[in-house]
Computed example of a mutant assay.
Amino acid sequence: MAACATSPTGRSQLMLVSPNQAVKASASAYPEKLKKYAEEGKLNTKPKMLERVKRITGQLIVEAEKMYPEAKQWDWEVAVIDEPDTVNAWSMAGGKMAIYTGLIEKVKPTDDELAQVMAHEISHALANHVAEQMSVAMASQIGLAVLSATALKDNRYRSAALTGAALAATLAVSLPYSRAAEREADKIGIEIAARAGFDPYAAASLWKKMTKVNKGAPPEFLNTHPAAASREKTLLELAPKMMKYYHPNEHHLRYRFH
């Protein structure tokens, strides 16, 4: 009964919510999620840090849009949330992202390493992982029978699904991605970062730092990944394959955020 789709790497996905629906829902949910931080005086309060994140993310976006032309239609946004104890980052559909100051201040990533974090988040959006997570959330709340592919053809059910879409988009951010989705984001992200001029080997060095900061436990935004040793091994295997895309002196364009 469930709708199916295929990810950029060929993985089958549960897709009760279309990518376009996820983008629209996230456009509504994103400012609402950030509103709390703004009211607490925690949103974009560190100009230099925000500028650095935007500069690095902007370079990644240029390459992401080349690889996935549909993303050129997105209204990209990135925020820095001032929570020094939170080592985390997240993304919604349509290029809506945020990173916490705790990740930057505790991990102290190089530009190459910070690029791996943001490329990973960008990749979740490109691979429609948010729409996939929304589908899981909505299925659990409303029921597969109501949100089945057949039911969605009926305007009455489509309307009901969209009513809860913004809520599902918000919930999707808090739900852990599957290991398959996380591996997929790693694979796509490391290539985007390499094409944008960031060292592919920084993915593994980032993981070492993250693990050390979290005293061996997986950091929050990677909590569904395989064990540290396994993940580091996978990233090190991917890195040399990405070197053909890595030309650090050729990618210094800044993307103008909307």
Rank of each mutant, 00 (worst) to 15 (best):
V62G: 09
W74P: 02
V107S: 03
Q133N: 14
A25G: 02
V78P: 03
W74G: 02
Y177C: 12
A93C: 00
G94L: 00
L238N: 04
M49H: 12
V117N: 06
L222C: 05
P248H: 08
P19M: 02
Q116H: 07
A185D: 08
V173M: 03
G10I: 05
A38E: 14
S178N: 02
W207S: 07
N128D: 15
P31T: 11
P219V: 09
K233F: 05
A25V: 05
S230L: 02
A202C: 09
E77T: 10
L253D: 13
N249T: 10
L236Y: 10
E182R: 08
G10D: 09
A25E: 11
E113R: 06
M210H: 06
R52N: 14
A203W: 10
A93Q: 04
S135W: 02
M210I: 14
R183F: 07
L206I: 10
M97V: 01
K35E: 12
E32R: 01
L171N: 06
E232H: 08
K153I: 02
L171E: 15
R183L: 14
L235M: 06
Y201Q: 10
Y246A: 11
N20H: 07
G95Y: 00
A119Y: 01
R158K: 15
A3N: 08
S123M: 08
I188W: 01
Y246I: 08
K46N: 12
T6I: 13
E65M: 10
G164M: 14
I190H: 02
H124R: 13
R195H: 04
G216W: 03
P226M: 15
Q21F: 12
E250W: 12
P226W: 03
D85N: 06
F257N: 04
S135N: 07
A204P: 08
D186Y: 15
A166I: 10
P109C: 13
G41I: 15
N88K: 04
E70I: 14
E220P: 01
P226V: 06
M118G: 04
S174G: 06
D186Q: 09
A227C: 03
A89W: 00
F198Y: 11
Q116W: 03
C4S: 15
A168H: 00
A194V: 14
S26C: 10
T57D: 02
E121T: 05
P84S: 08
K96P: 07
H120G: 07
Q59P: 00
W207M: 11
V107E: 04
A139Y: 11
A137S: 14
